[in-house]
Design a protein around this nucleic acid. Structure first.
Length: 225
DNA sequence: GGCCAGGACACCA
DNA sequence: TGGTGTCATGGC
């Protein structure tokens, strides 16, 4: 089966089973970006509390974050863990935004995908996953988010041999998926959700709704489909 | 008390 | 280049 149709069939199978994941929660682009930084290495529930705390204190703007002291920010985002590091990450991004785009996210996102991604990766505290999450979920740009879940996921199902780095995995998705924001948006969310829900209970077992497509062995789940 | 959750980075071999 | 330690909360 061609990679394009395989990836697409898996996507629709996951979507049919789990439904839309509705990522990424946030009322504004800036809120989405703050969430992307605060969610690093924690569950979304932890990050959401921190985002709401910043919002409640009127600190959910680049100007407010830069004006506030380290302690003022850190104490609001304790629930997101690693609050000292994340405070510096928030300030780093806001400094970049103010210095290069006068604080305007619309100006920032008018940049090309490749240029902006390169810039974001130079900001301290913004790695590949966070940069791609910002580009996709806040900027509505076609940048596929490939993370540790995605890597384990394709290894578990033996979908593609020889892919090991973040960018290799990202490119295989980007080169073989339709240029569709909805698909990019939901695919990553569905992979994460699928990995956490089904495979978590049986990490070595191919329990999944995609067995009939990939013809992989051992799938109690698919027996009930 | 232990484990895990939508990472990034510095350091070292 | 890859492995490891650091960061250091909250819910179950």
């Amino acid at each position: 089966m061609a990679i394009e149709s395989l990836l697409l069939r898996i996507f629709y199978k996951l979507l049919e089973h789990y439904g839309p994941r509705k990522w990424w929660p946030g009322n504004t682009k800036f809120e989405v970006i703050v969430g992307a930084i605060l969610v690093q290495s924690v569950a979304w529930e932890n990050a959401r509390g921190a985002v709401n705390s910043l919002k409640k204190e009127g600190l959910l703007s680049p100007q407010a974050i830069l004006s506030a002291t380290h302690e003022e920010i850190a104490t609001k985002i304790i629930s997101s863990r690693f609050y000292n590091q994340k405070t510096e990450k928030l300030k780093s991004f806001c400094s970049y935004l103010m210095a290069n785009y006068d604080g305007s996210l619309n100006k920032m996102f008018s940049n090309t995908l490749s240029d902006l991604r390169e810039d974001l990766l130079h900001i301290k505290g913004i790695g590949r996953e966070t940069a791609d999450s910002i580009l996709l979920y806040a900027g509505n740009k076609l940048s596929f988010v490939s993370d540790a879940y995605t890597k384990r996921w394709i290894e578990r199902y033996g979908l593609f041999d020889g892919l090991s780095t973040y960018d290799q995995i990202r490119e295989i998705f980007m080169n073989n998926l339709p240029e569709d924001l909805y698909i990019y948006n939901e695919y990553h969310a569905l992979i994460v959700h699928h990995s956490k829900s089904i495979c978590k209970s049986a990490p070595r077992c191919h329990l999944c709704p995609i067995k009939r497509i990939t013809e992989i062995t051992c799938c109690k789940f698919s027996e009930n489909m």
